[in-house]
Amino acid sequence: MEQFFTILANNIFVRILMVAVFLDCFLGAGRAIKEKAFNSCFGIDGGIRKVCMIGSVLFLLLVDAWTNFNFLFLLPEQVSEFIPISKLGLCEFFCILFILFESVSVLKNMLRCGLPIPGRLKILVERMLNSITNELETDELKAQKIKNVNS
């Protein structure tokens, strides 16, 4: 068990994921306070998702320890030489996916809080969120859509 915690503490992907989860929770709470829209249902739902995400990472770390699977053989040799890691198991693979998911959420919360985001990144995040979600819509756009639906 002690070896498991050592592996967990030394895994850079798990560390980055924990930082991303913390930032997302912190900025999400800040956004809810700023917008005066603190909703316990959203908070509980988000908390459950975070706990399940971290639980799945811990489970996959155990699976990796038992199976010793390494995805690096799938990468071209030039790429694996460039990346300074020796193992890319299921845990690391899903950590990368979760980090990307959390990063989008962090950027969205930064945008909604009005925090500074570099110009091109801000435009990219706005375009992406406007095309795949309705979270950046203003009250005027929402009222316009409702009016169009009712017409």
Score class of each variant (00 low, 15 high):
F94K: 05
E2R: 08
L97Q: 03
D45K: 05
R120H: 12
N134I: 01
R112H: 10
F71K: 03
E2I: 07
F82V: 03
N134L: 06
L75H: 00
N11M: 14
K145P: 12
I54H: 10
C113G: 04
A32S: 12
S56C: 11
R31G: 09
L129K: 10
S103H: 07
R49T: 01
L136A: 00
C52E: 13
S80F: 00
F82T: 05
C91L: 11
R127L: 05
C91M: 13
V125Q: 12
G89E: 12
F4I: 01
L107F: 09
S105A: 13
L141K: 15
I44P: 02
K50G: 03
E135H: 11
L129M: 15
R120S: 10
T6V: 12
E102T: 03
L90K: 02
L136E: 00
E81V: 01
N11Y: 11
E137P: 01
N11Q: 12
I83A: 07
A65D: 07
V21E: 03
I7Q: 13
C41M: 12
T67F: 09
F22P: 12
L74I: 07
K108R: 11
L97Y: 06
A32G: 06
S40I: 13
E92F: 08
D24H: 06
E2Q: 08
K142I: 15
F26C: 07
C52W: 10
A20Q: 03
